[in-house]
Design a binder for these strands. Structure first.
Lengths: 112, 112
DNA sequence: TGATTTCATCGTTCATCGACGATAGACGAT
DNA sequence: ATCGTCTATCGTCGATGAACGATGAAATCA
C-alpha cells in the first residue's frame, strides 16, 4: 500500500473524487448544515434556513452541492424535502483523509 | 459535547478554520503535491513542477496556498526552496474531519 | 563577470463560487 | 378555487480561483 487509497469497499477513490468531496466540505455554511443534519435527523430546507441566516435560495444551493457530492441524501417528500446525511459517504471521506495523512507521515523526515 | 470540536490540544478549531484547511485540500493538484511531499521528503518547487505537468508559476501558487493554510512548511534555502509537510497540522485536519463525522453519525436515524 | 538556474510575484484571462431577489411549481389548508 | 407555504431554479453581480507568460531577484556555475 503506497498511496492514500485502498480501504473502503475496494474501489480506490481517485484524487479528483476526494478533492470534489473535500470541496463540498470546504465552506463554513455547509459544515454547519452537516452538523445540523447530524445525529440521524433529517431536515427540510426551511429548518436549515431558520438556523443559518442565509437566504433560502442560498441554502438550497448549498444543499444541492452537498447532495451532488454524495454526502447528503435527498428525498422530495410531498411539500417538504428531506435531507439526510449519508453516513457511509462521510465516513469514506474521513477515511480518505486519514489515509492521506498516514501516507504523508510514513517516512519520518527532519523538520525544517 | 455537542459540536464537532473538542479533541486536539484543547483549542477547538472554528468552523472557518476547518473550512479553510479543507479548501486548501480540495484541489487535485494540491493533493498530489502533498503525496509527493509525503514520507518526510522535502521538495523544492522544481521537483514538484517536473512531476505535475503544470507551469512553474501555477505550482508555486498551489504551494503558497498550502503554506498559508498551515499544512506545509516553507524554508527558503539558498537558491532552492524547501517545502515540507506539517504532519501535526495535517493530523489535526484529519482529526477534525473524524470528529465531524462522528458527531454527525451519533444518533442513528432511519434511512431515506 | 556573465550566463544559467530556481523561484516568487505581477498582471491577465477565463471560469466558478457565493449570495441574493424574483419566480414558478407543488402541496396543504381554508 | 384560492391562498399561503415550501422548494428549486433562474438570472445577476461581485469576488475568488486557476492557469499562464513575463519579469525580476537571488544564488550557482563557467
Amino acid at each position: 500500500m503506497k498511496s492514500f487509497s485502498a480501504r473502503q469497499n475496494c474501489r480506490a477513490p481517485s484524487v479528483e473524487d476526494v478533492a470534489h468531496k473535500l470541496a463540498a466540505l470546504s465552506h463554513p455554511a455547509r459544515l454547519e448544515i452537516l452538523q445540523r443534519l447530524g445525529g440521524g435527523r433529517s431536515c427540510c430546507c426551511k429548518e436549515v434556513v431558520e438556523h443559518l441566516d442565509l437566504a433560502q435560495s442560498t441554502v438550497s444551493q448549498h444543499l444541492k452541492i452537498l447532495v451532488e457530492a454524495g454526502l447528503v441524501r435527498y428525498a422530495p417528500e410531498r411539500q417538504r424535502s428531506r435531507y439526510q446525511i449519508d453516513q457511509a459517504a462521510l465516513a469514506a471521506v474521513s477515511a480518505s483523509v486519514s489515509a492521506l495523512v498516514e501516507s504523508c507521515c510514513a517516512g519520518e523526515g527532519a523538520d525544517i
